[in-house]
Design a protein around this nucleic acid. Structure first.
Lengths: 253, 253
DNA sequence: CGCGAATTTGATGTGCTTCAATCCACGTGG
DNA sequence: CCACGTGGATTGAAGCACATCAAATTCGCG
């Protein structure tokens, strides 16, 4: 198993076991899954809408966005996936993709055949339940996005999004106040339901206020409490165990 | 078993078997689930955010909304549930509610204990998979809502929402072009991320155009193809089997 | 060094909000 | 059976957040 794939699996297993108790044999089953590695260039759409998907994608490097599109051609990103996320877990039970996938930066993904996923889920009810649970947590994030996009204006909306990413990257071991951020302002616009022009002005304004800024592919949080307050951020929906959450949020700087 | 509860279970079973093949014994397991009936008055919040949920709610009559809220107190409905929908299915694997539930009209709810749901899921892997799948379909609807709210303006946004409801009610046996609609314009505002004032103007405009109107608690579609075109509606995300979908969409008037 | 992509800025327009009344339907008690 | 109360629908006027259009600047990369 390549280093890259190995790392992705370990992150994924850590993510799953954070929310579900799995036995050693369950974890061994996950480690034994067959896979294929793929490289995806920035902005490449590697799964199209309506396609029949046969593999689940695990992100090992980079950032992947799920998106929908209007007849007018406007994109809206509906989910953002970072290393250790199984982008496609739901496709195991609903293989007809009702949205598309795009790499938001140069990414590496590990593809696991649905057959193998189904086989391990059938072998271990605990795993089946863990997969189900992970899908549900993804749906809760989605639900929070609806609130964010529907009811918050530009500055709080972006602040909220960045808070979520800070916590999710912190779970991977990055600093809460300095985490990788490769997406362009164009992607940020598609993430937030705004235009690139307005994203630009909003980001500048956030930087001028000394709250966050993005420089050389990483997001730097200058004032976490201001960011969280502005974004009206309550991390409960991420379903991170209290101990880990406290550790992340208490971080001095 | 009361008539009302019986009807709710039958609708729910029809909903589940529409997407998953279940054996007669699986269905018998579902029918054997214990339950409690409850009545909920309009606008009553019967599950609050952060609560530890112990029962899953099946809607038997009325309309139920799941919603989130901003510090400013603005509500955003993130899911709408009609009779036969299990509002809470995901709570079986993630009991800590990260959103609240509200009755959008006078409703009747059938509550099924999580314990019982877990027991039948453990007994039948096919049922476990069917539950997982239903959660995934709900997430896909959510995903479509993000696109709708993020990227469409008022008229198309409401058109899209009404198209979705028309199809979902049609699956219950209602006319596609004349289905129950109890929510007020206030609820419609919370559903769409707009204000009541703007909802009002938009609805009047849709009525004036001869597309849809709402009168005495039901939505009347005057021109389905105009509504679907305006709302940019592609029902694929609802994952209704082709045959049933064709039947609904082909409806003459 | 030079090209294309992303960022930044300005000017102008508009869809939606906000605030504030008024109107209407409906249920309830006298 | 009517008076009244209340929640929802409707309307108008004014303001603002964000979109649109268009151009210039900077960045990243071969």
């Amino acid at each position: 198993m390549s280093d890259r794939a190995q790392k992705a699996f370990e992150l994924w297993i850590r993510r799953i076991t954070m929310r579900s108790d799995l036995s050693a044999s369950d974890i061994a089953l996950l480690r034994s899954l067959p896979y294929e590695e793929h490289e995806v260039r920035t902005n490449h759409d590697f799964v199209r809408m309506g396609e029949l998907v046969t593999h689940a994608c695990l992100v090992s490097e980079g950032v992947v966005g799920r998106f929908g599109q209007t007849v007018a051609g406007h994109r809206q990103i509906t989910a953002l996936h970072i290393p250790g996320d199984m982008v496609d877990l739901h496709s195991v039970v609903v293989p007809r993709s009702s949205s598309a996938l795009q790499a938001l930066s140069h990414s590496h993904i590990v593809q696991v055949p649905h057959e193998a996923m189904k086989a391990v889920a059938a072998k271990s009810p605990a795993l089946a339940r863990a997969f189900w649970r992970d899908c549900v947590v993804d749906a809760m994030i989605l639900s929070e996005w609806v609130v964010n996009i529907g009811r918050r204006q530009a500055k709080p909306r972006i602040a909220h999004l960045l808070c979520e990413l800070a916590v999710r990257y912190a779970l991977l071991g990055h600093a809460r106040d300095d985490f990788p951020f490769n997406p362009t302002q164009i992607h940020l616009a598609d993430l937030s339901g705004l235009t690139t022009v307005h994203i630009n002005r909003t980001m500048r304004s956030l930087a001028k206020d000394g709250i966050v800024s993005i420089r050389s592919r990483s997001a730097v949080v200058h004032d976490w409490s201001a960011l969280a307050a502005l974004g009206d951020f309550d991390p409960a929906y991420l379903h991170v165990p209290d101990a880990r959450l406290a550790e992340i949020l208490a971080r001095p700087q």
